[in-house]
Amino acid sequence: MATESETEQGPLSRWVDSSIQNPEKVYRAMFYVATIFFLFTTLFPFYWLLVLALTPNDAIANFGFPPVPNGFNPGAFIEVFQQVPFHLYVFNSFVLGIVTTAVVLVLASLAGYVFGRLDFPGKAPLMLLILAVSYFPPAAFVIPLFRLFTGNVTLFGVAPPELFNTPFAMILPFSALFMPLSIFILSTFYGQIPDGLEDAARIEGTTRLGALFRVIVPLSAPGVATAGVLTFISVYNEFFFSFIMTTGEADQWAPLVWGILSYQGQYSELYNLMAAASIVGVLPVAIIVVVAQEKIVSGLTAGALKE
């Protein structure tokens, strides 16, 4: 319109001119740039895994950009289960994740109730102390725990049970490490449930504990789901303790990462299978997150209380 007379201007300066008139345009452009950037950084690794998985292992080299599979070998997704019992590794990780999540949610609910709903002297310092546990590098615990779990330590003259190569050697440290964050999340959510509801439940016939699990926890479903999903994913992905606390056989409760690593033998490195296994391992978690997200969004507490 107005720019028609200024014929020397190129398309870029015309665009700049019109965006000065209409800054909405710039914001939208920036939104797309940011979205594409984040989508690229999150999705590109998956694409790269897919490219590697579909490429036969002897052709894995010299990818251009953008990378495309050098060949087409979907059989890798079947081969992963033939080479090693990968389904067992996934199963182990699942069990570890679910048990740890259950332990964490139950204990963190109790602690969250105390920190969120009760008043007692020393509450804030104690909460800080608990959070400080999660700031500790897990590596600091690994040697003493390894000695403990392999039965090299006696406590008060009693040798503790040998937990090495059992799920407990992983569930115990996982629970301890991921507990503080869950306590923090849950205490925030539980603290927001009105006292009247807990009082009503107790009058109706529950104990405090009953009120917690029958009323407060269900009403805090989004918070419980958040804490649960975070814990589960952390455990499912965990490498450090999982790698040290088992010897790596599927029937010794070795988790997912051990499975992926087992495609790397002394003489061969089956990168395509590692990539395929990684994709298979990610899928269940992706499904869980999608399902749980619906729960998080559902907003159970909406508008039921007159305060």
């Binding site: 009105p194 009247g196 509801l197 104990t207 039921a304």
Partner: peptide, 19 residues
Amino acid sequence: PPKDRGIAMVFQNIALFPH
């Protein structure tokens, strides 16, 4: 505890269980 007292209570904020 409240549950063993043979009482029932109606609250100002009504306190129905929303779920």
